[in-house]
């Protein structure tokens, strides 16, 4: 999902220009809008390491603040720029770290307590956790492409800009990543609320 504001609200470009002009409230609005997505994206690229993801998210936002005076509205999207920074920061972190794939553990939620709302919520949480575990097992570039396309909601040209590759490469990475995810998640279909057939 793109997180530029809809009609009637200030765009990310507007808010960044206001921040550069000395408007402190603009920083708070931008942070509230961008930080959750930046943190979630970083966490998925770093295999769920929350502490590392927070460091990356803070560093990415800091680079945004420093870049603000030189930002030229209309040339690119603030969100795309930010995703690119996070992608590169995570790549740097992974190069020096020995990353272990998160095991697709047996930590399925307990049997639901019978309340319809609770059961639905627990199934959703289990699916999200299973997907995150499967994503962590993908090659880095496939994971980046799949997360940007199907969770963050970027278009293929935007993903190409973030990853520094061509659109065809993005399509190939996304397709291969989804095939790997489907294969990893298929054995757990029943446990995750999908009926046979």
């Amino acid at each position: 999902m793109a997180f530029d504001a809809g009609s009637g609200a200030a765009t990310d470009d507007d808010l960044l220009a206001m921040y550069a002009a000395g408007d402190r409230a603009a920083a708070r609005v931008l942070t509230g809008r961008l930080l959750p997505r930046v943190l979630a994206y970083a966490a998925r690229l770093l295999g769920g390491d929350r502490a590392e993801a927070e460091d990356v998210a803070q560093e990415a936002m800091l680079r945004l603040w420093r870049m603000a005076p030189g930002w030229r509205p209309g040339e690119a999207k603030v969100s795309t720029w930010l995703y690119r920074v996070v992608t590169n920061l995570c790549t740097d972190r992974r190069r020096g770290a020995q990353r272990r794939a998160q095991p697709m553990g047996d930590d399925l939620p307990d049997a639901p307590d019978g309340a319809p709302g609770a059961e639905v919520r627990m199934v959703e949480e289990a699916r999200a956790a299973a997907l995150d575990a499967a994503l962590a097992a993908l090659p880095d570039r496939q994971r980046e492409a799949v997360v940007l396309r199907h969770i963050e909601g970027l278009s293929n040209p935007e993903i190409a800009e973030v990853m520094g590759v061509g659109v065809e490469a993005v399509e190939s990475l996304t397709a291969r990543g989804k095939r790997a995810l489907a294969a990893a998640l298929a054995p757990r279909r029943d446990a995750l609320g999908y009926a046979e057939g």
């Binding site: 943190l39 966490a43 699916r127 997907l131 909601g153």
Partner: peptide, 13 residues
């Protein structure tokens, strides 16, 4: 369905 669950989840700052 998995992607939708992931979009709704995610660590909050």
């Amino acid at each position: 369905g998995f992607f939708a669950a992931a979009r709704a989840a995610g660590p909050a700052p």
